[in-house]
Design a binder for these strands. Sequence first.
DNA 1: TCGACTATTGACTTGTGGTCAATAGGGTCC
DNA 2: GGACCCTATTGACCACAAGTCAATAGTCGA
Lengths: 225, 225
Amino acid sequence: MPPRRGPIVAAVRKALPRAKPRVRLDNDARRAQLLQLARRTFAGRAYDEVSIDDLAREAKISKGLLYHYFPTKRDLYVAGLREIADELVERVATIPAALTPQERVRAGLEAYLEHITLHQRAFVSLMRGGIGSDPEVAGVVEGVRTRLADRFLDGSPFAPVLRGEPRFETALRGWIGFVEGASIDWCAHPRMTRDALREMLAQVLFAVLSVVGGIAAAASAEKGT
Amino acid sequence: MPPRRGPIVAAVRKALPRAKPRVRLDNDARRAQLLQLARRTFAGRAYDEVSIDDLAREAKISKGLLYHYFPTKRDLYVAGLREIADELVERVATIPAALTPQERVRAGLEAYLEHITLHQRAFVSLMRGGIGSDPEVAGVVEGVRTRLADRFLDGSPFAPVLRGEPRFETALRGWIGFVEGASIDWCAHPRMTRDALREMLAQVLFAVLSVVGGIAAAASAEKGT
DNA sequence: TCGACTATTGACTTGTGGTCAATAGGGTCC
DNA sequence: GGACCCTATTGACCACAAGTCAATAGTCGA
């Protein structure tokens, strides 16, 4: 005869007295609280330095309830990450439309830099801290990169010319890497003013575009000859 | 009276018959085998998709033996990562000394690109896949960045002028980010020849240096006036 | 042949992510 | 105001993987 675990155990359980639940919260409120908590916690400690029990204890709820709201520890983590990512992208997306393309780039960079100074820990742990091996996490970070690239180039006079040009795509990824590398370094060692950094990033973008344009022109000229 | 676990259990253990150990290997050979295995495995699957039991099974040894050679799963992982990192840096470091600075940059980039094409999976999982939150892992990756930067600039005519200049340090980090971003993108979507990519990376470096130089010059001129 | 040294084993402990039946609080309907 | 239902909440439990450790089997030199 097989063990038949469940029911027997259940019968035993019934006999035990129960402690009263603590606080009863509305679904959305609880979910928001947990997300907030996760964001705070994961910004400070690494993913697997934080246990679900820790989070539950901090939130003054049982572990089971946490799993009622988020099916997985990773889901909770990703949800928090996604919020951070979206806030950043959205911040960069909201720049006045009535600017010259160059000014739009500068404004976007300004918004970007302002946002990351305000949320340094979250930003760095988003771009560098994540579990890169997890496809979903990688997707979020990757999404930030491509969406930011799109924003920065929105309405640029270069964009229509260069979009689709293979070299351009790679160069753009490169520039995004530049921005990431420089700004993360700048967070750790703020060796210049924010304005100076912004200016540098903008000028590098223009320089990169001109390099790519030049190479493309040279290549087509050579082909033409 | 306290439980007194150990000895009692030990006495019981003695009675059990033992299977014979499989193969007996010299210390260094075993260690090398395990490192090799770890590198292969972690290049293909994520850190926590690979269990110690998996590795032990694959190596046809017991888990305990694995822990005899590497005190921790993470240590094993980091050891493999470190090898990959060192190989890459070393590859870039061995370029002929009798070249012009510009040609040295190109040669370094060539070596870099050749190496990462040959070891794509390892390279990408080194730079993007690691457990970024682990300080030791982060250290390895960070080390690659700074060491590569040093190599690329070795003997450059710009270096003596710009070293220590705050903007320059940040710009260099940025360029390293550019190289990383562009080359990882290129691994996934090889939209151009290796030569073309190398040329682009080199020209971007020169452009970046000129931008930084220009800004620095402008700043000092302004100050001087 | 014996003893020492060490590579090797595998049962065990511990910690943590994840499951699930049971329950308590609170509203609604008669 | 009691019966009933809905759902937020609990806590005991499981599974599995990292890490520990006393015991053991090869091997080599005296």
